[in-house]
């Protein structure tokens, strides 16, 4: 314990004997003891009861749907005949849609790895923890970065002709630019969007792209992965 620290532990809290986090000291802020937590309820029965009701509702809903809707079963697996179109489970159809545009190494390995790594590191970056609005500091400089990033994305996606990624990117990019605070006075419509941090924008972009890809892969792709409308009958 030779190291000199800027703070001292409170009375009777021997950290070696009884480690327990009582204060957080983050950069640029003073130590903040958790303040008023408001009303508290006993877990038994309040939490237990709610969880039990949630469980019952869930099981009732599941049983009802399972009675009405049969799980699909196709022909016996045949390694000699690929069904057309061959589709992965719905939650991988976004990935399959990406595989249509990008080489397998990019769409199958690099992008998913980046997504997982990106998710894991979210809580380890101060910019995400503080969650300051994107345009709060140096808006003009950030606008340039945003426009450059969006332009690069649009170019890359256009080169690969990844239209189903490009369209949601346009929508989110458009909203992002729209949220840029106008120099003269406040805009009402931009208030919610204008106060969003960078992490919010990236995650929202990711969700909208993933949702679009999954929906397109599920409903709009027919034989040979060509575009079909869900209401037009195909295959047969």
């Amino acid at each position: 314990m030779s190291e000199k620290t800027d703070y001292e532990a409170g009375l009777g809290s021997n950290a070696l004997k009884n480690p327990q986090r009582i204060v957080f000291i983050t950069k640029k802020t003073s130590a903040k003891v958790k303040g008023d937590v408001g009303k508290q309820l006993m877990s038994y029965p309040h939490v237990i009861l709610r969880e039990a009701i949630a469980f019952q509702l869930l099981v009732i809903a599941m049983v009802l749907v399972a009675l009405l809707w049969d799980a699909p079963l196709e022909q016996l697996a045949n390694p000699l005949l690929t069904p057309n179109p061959a589709k992965a489970p719905w939650y991988f159809l976004g990935l399959q849609e990406l595989l249509h545009y990008f080489p397998p190494l990019v769409a199958g390995i690099i992008i998913p790895t980046l997504v997982v790594v990106g998710l894991i590191v979210i809580p380890y970056f101060n910019v995400n923890i503080q969650g300051k609005p994107l345009w709060a500091t140096n808006p003009a400089g950030r606008l340039r970065v945003v426009i450059a990033t969006l332009a690069a994305l649009v170019i890359v996606l256009s080169v690969f002709r990844a239209w189903t990624v490009l369209v949601p990117t346009f929508v989110i990019g458009g909203l992002l630019l729209f949220s840029y605070p106008a120099p003269s006075g406040d805009r009402n419509s931009g208030q919610f969007l204008g106060s969003r941090p960078i992490s919010w924008w990236v995650m929202t972009w990711f969700i909208v792209v993933a949702l679009t890809l999954t929906l397109v892969g599920t409903f709009f792709r027919g034989p040979g992965w060509s575009w079909v409308w869900p209401w037009s009958s195909h295959g047969a």
Binding site: A77, N78, P79, P83, A86, K87, A88, G108, I109
Partner: peptide
Amino acid sequence: WDQLAFWAITVGTNII
């Protein structure tokens, strides 16, 4: 072990 299963796994493992 139906067609759905077989080809989804074939495609998935080829990505690996």
